[in-house]
Design a protein around this nucleic acid. Structure first.
Lengths: 119, 119
DNA sequence: GTAATCTACAACCAAATGGTTGTAGATCAG
DNA sequence: CTGATCTACAACCATTTGGTTGTAGATTAC
């Protein structure tokens, strides 16, 4: 499926975006209030251009949006990316739980047989 | 309460580990059943050494464990890493929801005032 | 015992990543 | 109008990443 192939790349970008402490901090900040790019840049010990790149990475990952507002660019949280990331991890959790419960079933069965064998 | 103090580097590694399609597939596979490293390697169009490295990345991220079993190395899902990742995303979600509800409150207040102004 | 299998690890390579500086175009303030 | 501010983007650099091949040590199978 072409859709899946494309979304694999999207997923790569999504988790890649989360794999940097500065970017995670930007996500937190803009999740509670909008920031301009320069407003964000003022928060970190790195150049404006570096922060600009981090924001671009987050935008490509659908974790933030940018909106031109006069000469500023307003950065806001984009819930879409976060939602997708959470959903993916939920799927892995579901797979894990399924195996967990299969194991639990087997243990219960063994316990039952043990119960049969003992008076 | 300081339940799980996760260093920024640990978090980097965690999400970095998820940012590759092969590694995500390995996580899914070993979540439903244990695999040897060579058993995993047989699934992908890349060298054994490449898969070995992917498994090592997942192990450092606490997403899988390896256990020597004869000459094989059995790879299993490690729920710890997945849980941490989910918890982190839950925190971002909480921050976002908080802002969301603040905005909803403001809108409700405005609607109320509008109601007061209109007969 | 010998051969096949499984793993570890080193050395190497191309591409991506995260940072820098510098330049230039818009927009706003006084 | 002029200067300050905000952004975009290019060029460059060091390090990391994801892959390769090759070698060597255990363990298992016959």
């Amino acid at each position: 499926m072409v859709v899946d192939q494309l979304s694999e790349n999207d997923t790569d970008r999504l988790f890649q975006a989360f794999s940097d402490a500065t970017r995670r901090d930007i996500v937190r900040r803009v999740s509670s209030a909008p920031f301009s790019v320069s407003g964000l840049a003022a928060l970190y010990a790195m150049s404006f251009a570096a922060v600009q790149k981090h924001v671009a990475v987050l935008e490509r990952a659908s974790l933030v949006t940018k909106e031109k507002r006069g000469r500023e660019q307003v950065v806001r949280a984009n819930h879409e990316g976060l939602q997708r990331a959470r959903q993916l991890l939920d799927e892995y959790e579901a797979i894990w739980r399924e195996r967990s419960s299969r194991i639990a079933d087997i243990l219960a069965e063994e316990t039952e047989q043990l119960g049969d064998a003992l008076p």
